[in-house]
Amino acid sequence: MPARNVWRRATSSLARGAVYGLTAVALIPLGLVLWHTVVNGLPAATHVDFFVNVERPVGIPGAGVAHAIVGSAIMVGIASAVAVPLGVVSGVNLVEFGGGLARAVRLAADVLVGAPSIAIGLFAYVLFVAPFHHFSGMAGALALAILMLPVVIRTTEGAVALIPAGLRESGLALGLPRWRVALQLVLPAAAPGVITGALLAMARAAGETAPLLFTGFGNRFWTVDPTQPMSALPLIVFHDALTPYPSLQQQAWGAALVLVAAMLVINLASRWVVRRQQRFAGQL
């Protein structure tokens, strides 16, 4: 074999090794973050107190983050109630009716996905906090809804676009108006993908800290009233991690572990649903 070819093959193998090596490097942080969160979070998160009690002053045992778990659930719940219906309708509209408006909506959704969450927080502060003169869970929920909306729009659009044209055409051939085809035929067929998208958007919202800093604000006490300031798991992680007290730092790691566990479950489950949906659409 000519020397030049030996050289070419050697370069190729070397470069290929480097590319695969870099790919491995990309996955190292994932492993490290998961590992350290589990190891540092377990001591706090294996106490029952952690899930049933609220924050306590440093040095007093039995502290928990129950109020933050409930706060996260309430704010994400309200945010979903606002963003999911709006986003789904908007996403279906994009595919089924199209046109110039659809292009503008798609562009706006893509731009919104990339909007810094802290700026969304400022926006929500101006609209939902300043006029009422106090922070509230409701304001936090609306800030999260703004973050969720573009994600729901785009994932709904993706799921609906997978539905074969035959289904629409059969509906129209039977004399159904377009809106009924969209809502009663296409949307149910795309439901798994739409639900997955909504879940992913909820997961993203549940992990957000920045938009809650000056809307939900945080609260050391138990509250389920969305007109009051409300705590959330990410806020606990952020505030407690920056304190000098080991017990609070441990609490931050525990809350981080709860967040990460929730993310993992939602993401892995949604990947499974998406794969099934794609296989199903392939058979249709």
Binding site: A26, L27, P29, A203, G207, A241, Q249, A256, M263
Partner: peptide
Amino acid sequence: AVGTGVELLAAIPSVVYGVWALYVM
């Protein structure tokens, strides 16, 4: 495997990266 890993990397909340970066990295 790589695809799932990269997707999970995107799913980890910012604040968790924050604590990890502050105390470990």
